[in-house]
Amino acid sequence: MSEAEWRLLNCLLVDIMDCEERVKFRDVEVVTMNDGGMGSFALRGACPGLKKLAVEAMSKDSDGTELLISLFCDCSGKPAEVDIWKVDFSPLCVFPDPETLKFLPPIG
């Protein structure tokens, strides 16, 4: 996991997992998802199957384009993937700075 991926994941986990639990994911291997270069990644070792939306946030890429960042957890509640959707479907310029994230209210 790159430093940028870790900083983003760690920030997304703050409200759902304590520090001791979050640190366990620092060295998890990630797989870049086939999303047209928008930056999404999956964590190796996640349970296969249906994923549950855990956290959503908005940010902007360095070119000013809006980003929707979603953290999905697996059936055991562990982080499974971070989906980054750039609203114009163009490739991500840089990973969002966690300090720029605007968290969206939980659904349901």
Rank of each mutant, 00 (worst) to 15 (best):
K24D: 10
A4L: 11
P96M: 01
F95T: 05
M33V: 08
N34G: 01
S76H: 11
C93Y: 11
S2W: 13
D35W: 03
G49C: 04
C19D: 15
S2H: 14
P105A: 07
W6C: 03
C11I: 06
V30A: 12
V30P: 08
N10E: 12
F72H: 09
I16Y: 08
D18H: 06
R26K: 10
C75L: 10
D97A: 04
D63A: 02
F103N: 00
F89E: 13
V28M: 13
F41G: 04
I69S: 04
C93H: 08
V87A: 12
D18Y: 04
D35R: 02
E20K: 12
A42D: 08
I84Q: 02
S2A: 12
L104Y: 08
L101K: 00
V28H: 11
I69T: 08
G39T: 07
R22N: 00
L101V: 00
P106N: 06
G39F: 03
A46N: 00
I69K: 05
L9V: 08
I107D: 10
A54D: 03
E20C: 11
R7Y: 10
E99C: 12
V55D: 01
N34K: 07
P79K: 03
D27F: 11
S59A: 08
C11Y: 06
D61S: 02
I84L: 06
M1N: 07
F103L: 07
G45E: 02
V94H: 14
T32M: 10
V55L: 00
L104H: 14
K60F: 09
A46I: 00
A46W: 02
E20A: 14
D63C: 07
E56K: 13
V55R: 06
D83C: 11
V87Q: 13
K60P: 04
K52A: 12
D61W: 00
L43S: 01
L71K: 04
I107N: 10
W85D: 13
N10F: 01
F25Q: 03
L53D: 05
S40H: 00
C19N: 12
P105E: 06
G49P: 05
S40Y: 00
D61R: 02
